[in-house]
Design a protein around this nucleic acid. Structure first.
Length: 223
DNA sequence: AACTCTCACAACCGCTGTACA
DNA sequence: CTGTACAGCGGTTGTGAGAGT
């Protein structure tokens, strides 16, 4: 049973433990966390290993203070998504869910900037969260529309975004999320299951943004 | 110098969702 | 359909450093 690992070490990680974990991930890759302790002789539970890697050891983790832009994004996303820290962190390259959560709990919860947003009259801010749902893409026209027929077009076993990047006039199906803050012209769009490194952020100029009637013009670029 | 308090961050715990037999 | 194992998430706690008294 989880949590009853008698004799498993707890508390702060040592440099040696970090090295063992890093070595294990480099050799075997991420995932299969339950096997990690045995593979390298780490006396830690799989949760502890996973957390240490994701929050501290993983390459590309950004250290240091959050920028104004990041803080602004956190506030906006939290207003839309609530305490869904992993989703919020997913929009902040190099930041972890734990980082965002800690930052929120220690510095932003009582921040005056939040109060400003909260105090705005309800009719001046309209946050629209497009829940995960299938959309179709037409690359050639840089257009995304729910009115297009959704095609189950799976090509050569590739992930859909691979073909999306390679080919012209490719229709693909995906589950996507969209966010839009009316008035402040903040809009973003991302696609579920797309690896962070390959995610495409978008500038979205919206027309008729509302329930069931989407018509986006999308500028794509790669990270 | 010694003690207390506060804050930021690391880590743990309990729970949920999912895959699979 | 049910039980089990696992990954992942959010809430909470522990801890160390620095500031204040």
């Amino acid at each position: 049973m989880e949590g009853s690992n008698l004799g498993v070490r707890k508390g702060a990680w040592t440099r040696e433990e970090d090295d063992l974990l890093r070595q294990c991930i480099e050799n075997h890759g991420e995932g299969k966390w339950h096997q990690v302790p045995n593979k390298v002789g780490l006396n830690r539970c799989r949760k502890s290993c996973r957390l240490r890697w994701l929050n501290y050891l993983k390459p590309n983790i950004k250290r240091g203070d959050f920028t104004e832009e990041e803080v602004d994004l956190i506030i906006r996303l939290h207003k839309l998504l609530g305490n869904r820290w992993s989703l919020i962190a997913g929009r902040l390259p190099g930041r972890t869910a734990n980082d965002v959560k800690n930052y929120w709990n220690t510095r932003l919860r009582m921040d005056s900037r939040l109060k400003k947003v909260k105090d705005k009259p309800q009719e001046t801010i309209k946050a629209i969260v497009i829940r995960p749902q299938p959309r179709s893409f037409i690359k050639s026209s840089n257009c995304l529309s729910s009115k297009e027929p959704i095609l189950d077009h799976i090509q050569n076993g590739k992930d859909w975004w691979e073909t999306f990047l390679d080919d012209e006039d490719v229709f693909e199906k995906a589950t996507c999320y969209g966010l839009a803050l009316e008035e402040e012209e903040f809009t973003s769009f991302w696609v579920d299951d797309m690896p962070q490194s390959k995610r495409q952020c978008t500038n979205v100029t919206e027309e008729g943004l509302g329930t069931g009637d989407f018509s986006f013009n999308v500028d794509f670029w790669n990270h």
